[in-house]
Design a binder for these strands. Structure first.
Length: 457
RNA sequence: GGCGCGAUAGCAAAGCGGUUAUGCACCGGAUUGCAAAUCCGUGUAGGUGGGUUCGACUCCCGCUCGCGCCUCCA
């Protein structure tokens, strides 16, 4: 039985889908005005893993990950860059697709864009107005009346009276209450806008997810995920809007992944301490990054440093080394056998990927000891469920993501040829000199029964 | 001020009321021309003070420290 930690209940709960055998899941994706950073990588990889495990568990999954392609930051960035909003967002959507693909993230079933859902947003706002939860300000904005929605704060554990709106940011004087948030912003001169019953304007921050979620998955669906920083106010407001408009429960299970940190501080755009995915991929294999993310539990903080990535790379090499030594027999996973059983237990326990990885390493040890193609096959198949160990071991071990200036495979092979000749005439000092030369260039030689192999350190 | 989370061996990171987590690094041995890889062996880790218990890293309470949210953020 799959258990999921539900942020709404603050505890692990048995997962029971609304419709037996199928799952509807929505994850807050990117706002596309810049390159994806490591925090985005974590959401991408974590929910890709969740989606894969749900499917592996035999459930039919409808996975939606949205793209927010209209908001204040996008407008500002396009203006600063002197390009159109469309050009800007298209460009960064392409980059996001590239980054996600590199990390082995499968395409969601739907990737709706906010700008394609304006009518649905307007309909939601209309309902909220009809239900007495929305009002128009003197300035022309449509706002949500937080205090008129009972239960506001249930996701983030906040009580309306404890929220200190305006403590850190100036209060907008046109609101009825400082806690109210905007559903529809009236257009200022020069800003993009859509016509609406409340005048020309554009969507507020939260309404797009309520609209896309309910349009694609229904008013009530199973799982909603995203980064922990979205829990408040974004997800809290999504609940208020959706339940306020539809008058029914919005989401059963809320999942939030932990932050990526740098030097024990949250990695964020405002702190400026973020690393983009493509920046990291210049030095590290994308699978190393994926493994680095998955070897920690998704709810724990994940501290980033190159040292930790190096560590992850070594660990992943051990797995690939086992597969290199023993050809994996292609076979379905035997769920009755101990490794698979333990793997499933770990994953069913709120997606405990660190424990699942431990199973992988123990399996690798077995493979090394027994040289068993069957076990190697299980290792490969189980890891595949996490989107790991999908490549040729040789290709992984000889890959050169670190920098462009590295010695080429052809040069390495040539030197190995020379060394083999030296060894044949028992000129070991010449052989060792070549090995040391290669070692300096970051190449490790492995003399074996079948000849000399190599890999990058 | 309100709410919440965490503290595990050199580093990273899990489960678990009593039995080896796991990985990296380190050390000894096997293997190797020497290595690498692999295998075998070695680690009395669980912030601190109490309590519950036959027994606690694991449950309860206090304390200390760290972090997050209450503002845009994945």
């Amino acid at each position: 039985m799959l258990k999921i930690y539900n942020s709404l209940a603050r505890e692990k709960q048995n997962f029971v889908p609304i419709t037996p055998g199928s799952v509807r899941m929505y994850v807050c994706g990117m706002t596309v005005y810049d390159y994806c950073h490591l925090g985005h990588a974590r959401v991408l990889v974590v929910f890709d893993m969740v989606q894969r495990w749900l499917r592996a568990s035999g459930l039919e999954v409808n996975y939606v990950r949205n793209i927010t392609d209209i908001d204040d930051k996008i407008i500002k960035r396009a203006f600063d860059n002197k390009e159109s909003i469309g050009e800007l967002t298209e460009r960064f959507i392409r980059c996001m697709d590239e980054d996600a693909a590199a990390l082995g993230v499968e395409k969601p079933d739907h990737e709706p864009r906010a700008t394609a859902y304006i009518p649905q947003m307007l309909e939601l706002i209309r309902r909220l107005e009809a239900n007495g939860l929305a009002y128009q300000t003197a300035a022309g904005d449509m706002n949500f009346s937080v205090r008129k929605f009972p239960g506001y704060g249930k996701l983030s554990g906040k009580s309306v009276d404890d929220l200190r709106a305006g403590e850190r940011v100036d209060v907008d004087g046109t609101k009825d209450d400082p806690l109210d948030f905007v559903l529809w912003k009236h257009a200022k001169p020069g800003e993009p806008f859509w016509p609406s019953p409340w005048g020309n304007g554009r969507p507020g921050w939260h309404i797009e997810c309520s609209a896309m979620g309910s349009d694609l998955l229904g008013k009530h669906f199973d799982i909603h995920g995203g980064g922990q920083d979205l829990q408040f106010p974004h997800h809290e407001n999504e609940i208020a809007q959706s339940e306020g408009a539809h008058r029914c429960r919005f989401v059963n299970y809320w999942m939030h992944n932990g932050f990526v940190r740098v030097d024990d501080e949250k990695m964020s755009k405002s702190l400026g301490n973020f690393f983009t995915i493509r920046e990291i991929l210049k030095k590290y294999d994308p699978e190393v990054l994926r493994f680095f993310i998955l070897r920690a539990h998704y709810r724990s903080p994940l501290n980033y440093s190159e040292g930790h990535l190096d560590d992850a790379r070594q660990a992943l090499s051990r797995l690939y080394t086992a597969l290199k030594a023993v050809p994996a027999e292609v076979a379905p996973i035997d769920w009755n056998q101990s490794p698979a059983l333990r793997f499933r237990q770990a994953m069913d326990d709120d997606f405990n990927t660190p424990e699942a990885c431990a199973v992988l390493f123990e399996l690798a040890g077995e493979v090394n000891r027994n040289q068993s193609p069957v076990l190697a096959g299980q290792l490969r198949a189980l890891a595949g469920l996490l989107g790991l160990l999908t490549r040729d071991p040789q290709v992984f071990l000889q890959a050169t993501p670190r920098n462009e200036g590295e010695i080429s495979a052809a040069d390495i092979e040539a030197l190995i040829g020379q060394r083999v000749a030296a060894k044949q005439r028992k000129d070991y000092s010449a052989a060792d000199r070549i090995r040391n030369e290669l070692a300096t260039a970051g190449v490790i030689l492995e003399d074996g029964a079948k000849g000399t192999g190599w890999r990058r350190a």
